[in-house]
Design a protein around this nucleic acid. Structure first.
Lengths: 123, 123
DNA sequence: AGGCTCGTACGATAAGCATCGTAATACGGG
DNA sequence: CCCGTATTACGATGCTTATCGTACGAGCCT
């Protein structure tokens, strides 16, 4: 017997994705999330595009399982927001929240990443 | 008062402390180093004091062994510079180097840390 | 309905890391 | 020359994490 998912007109799907509220976002967690090259790459791409992207739009050097893991770390640390949209899962940077919590931090991090890439070239 | 300074130019002792040069400092490494609460605390203290401090001037909730470990991580990631001065080991923030590599990043990180402490500390 | 695509859950594994205690080393002073 | 202080080195341990493969569930399309 399956759980009759009550009318649920607000949420398009029954799948719940827990996100930390702003007060729960920890700087250490954000830094740890961004200290992984794969995750930093994801965040840079999200920031560059400026829109929500589905997981499959990223060309990452890891398997799908690992990709799921990295997106979850980013979501649980408060860096991105994930929402289901049909079969796709959309990912958006929590820019407003992060800027409110740590003004200027995200921009400084993105600028630093861009600078490092410019210095070392794309490898 | 400097007493019995050893031979001025070369290393004062056989103890070598390898530091990364600027080009070797990686953003991911810096973020990883600062994602540990103990290390973030060390860096904040160094930034606040603005001068070099010996390891024993820090009151950290870990043993000496662990303290040594954290200082080494900070040094190897390029965040601090360590030099021997007699029996003491002095630690200084590599502010100039970091500002040159990633302008604004260190200040943004320190501001973010201060903001988080203000939020969670004084009510 | 049946298949297709996207993403998840669940193990499993191997590496990394924060932590500690103890023994050892370097340096300065009596 | 020995002693005390400051710090490291080494070895151990338990936890976290990055990675994978495979099997499963959820929604779209014909």
């Amino acid at each position: 017997m399956r759980a009759t998912v009550t009318t649920a007109s607000s949420a398009p799907s029954s799948r719940a994705l827990p996100h930390p509220v702003c007060e729960e976002i920890r700087l250490e967690g954000v830094l740890h999330a961004l200290s992984d090259p794969v995750r930093l790459r994801i965040v840079r791409r999200l920031a560059a595009e400026g829109v929500e992207l589905s997981c499959s739009h990223f060309d990452l050097p890891v398997t799908k399982s690992t990709t799921t893991h990295h997106f979850r770390v980013l979501r649980e640390s408060g860096v991105i927001r994930q929402t289901y949209e049909g079969t796709a899962k959309m990912n958006g940077l929590r820019r407003t929240d992060l800027d409110g919590l740590f003004p200027g931090l995200l921009d400084a991090l993105l600028a630093a990443a861009a600078r490092q890439e410019a210095r070392h070239g794309v490898r």
